[in-house]
């Protein structure tokens, strides 16, 4: 069993530990770059699980501290919202 290949880091977008480690080794050492290449963190949960795991992997492979790894921007909405619900709001 290939362990890295079987460990899913981003469950929304099916990104494995193997893919993440491969990118870090190729020099992509920010969460943003890994997100842009693999879509990790772009799914419905917006990186709630994978973000911290990816930061930990980057820290581990680059020898940096977790605090030194830049955080990606947190973007709204906090939870997915139906377009139909948004369209019906009447606050203007």
């Amino acid at each position: 069993m290939n362990k890295e290949k079987d460990v899913i880091i981003c469950r929304c977008e099916d990104v494995t530990l193997e893919e993440i480690r491969e990118l870090i080794k190729r020099g992509y050492t920010t969460v943003d770059e890994i997100k842009r290449i693999t879509r990790a963190g772009m799914g419905p949960c917006q990186g709630r699980t994978c973000r911290d795991l990816i930061i930990r992997e980057i820290a581990r492979l680059t020898g940096k501290r977790v605090e030194e790894i830049p955080m990606p921007t947190f973007r709204p909405p906090i939870k997915p919202i139906k377009l139909g619900v948004l369209a019906e709001s009447e606050d203007d």
């Binding site: 772009m42 917006q46 139906k82 369209a87």
Partner: peptide, 25 residues
């Protein structure tokens, strides 16, 4: 923007009004 875009989208593709917004930027 979120509301304005939702109104345009739902008018154009009403059957998809149940589609959820994941992220805006």
């Amino acid at each position: 923007f979120l509301e304005g875009m939702a109104r345009k989208f739902v008018r154009l593709l009403p059957r998809l009004s149940g589609l959820r917004v994941v992220r805006q930027w």
